[in-house]
Write a protein that binds this DNA or RNA. Structure first.
Length: 206
DNA sequence: TATAGGATTTAC
DNA sequence: TAAATCCTATAG
């Protein structure tokens, strides 16, 4: 079984510290270090899009793990997820913040990665990458050193899912990062200590 | 076919 | 505090 076939709540914290690389439409390659993720754990998770059933939009989540699920919210923002779990078990990890690698800025000059809509703009991610595997260009996830301290909080912006799922502690952040989408103080850490499984290694060759 | 609302960001 | 902006899901 591959790393990405593990449950979303296992993959999400393990992706902290990993580097996300994207080959942009303009030919430029951009990178950021992942510092915030959220797990959407399956069809029974009322905050997960797949809880509405298998539709054209959620189809990719029902497919093989390790592919990109990218969708548009509020008519403006592309959000990037990695599909996890077995086929027909729709789970995904939403990447909510990255620290831009030195020299990386968006095609439009945008320089921030602290927010799910901001990092996609920074790295030139949009729906053209829907369904793309995340282990080869133009989309590559490289393993990185895990954060010294990981904090866990409820997910952001899912109150519509009801108390149980809105309050579930499925958001994972690098507690030492200054590039989070929502400060730790605001949602509050539920405590957690580092030392998780790491993303598969794939070292940048050049 | 029509309508409501969203895993957000930005500006007033 | 509200607008931007478009796609999806649901109802009629």
């Amino acid at each position: 079984m591959s790393f990405y076939e593990l449950p979303a709540e296992v993959v999400a914290p393990a992706l902290l510290g990993a580097t996300l690389e994207v080959g942009g439409r303009d030919g430029v390659t951009r990178r950021g270090r992942i510092v915030e993720t959220e797990a959407y754990v399956g069809a029974h998770d009322l905050a997960c899009h797949a809880s509405k059933g298998r539709t054209a939009r959620t189809e990719v989540m029902f497919g093989p793990a390790g592919r990109a699920y990218v969708y548009l919210v509020y008519g403006l923002h592309e959000l990037f997820n990695v599909v996890t779990g077995a086929p027909d078990d729709p789970q995904a990890v939403l990447v909510r913040a990255v620290e831009p690698e030195a020299g990386t800025s968006g095609p439009d000059g945008h320089e921030r990665g602290d927010g799910p809509g901001r990092l996609t703009r920074l790295l030139d991610i949009d729906r053209r990458l829907l369904g793309s595997p995340v282990d080869r260009p133009p989309l590559v996830l490289y393993a990185g050193a895990p954060p010294r301290e990981v904090a866990v909080t409820p997910r952001v912006g899912v109150s519509y899912a009801g108390p149980e799922w809105a309050e579930a502690t499925l958001r994972f952040v690098d507690a030492g990062s200054s590039h989070l989408s929502v400060s730790l103080a605001r949602l509050g850490p539920s405590g957690y200590s580092s030392r998780g499984r790491r993303a598969p290694s794939r070292t940048p060759s050049t």
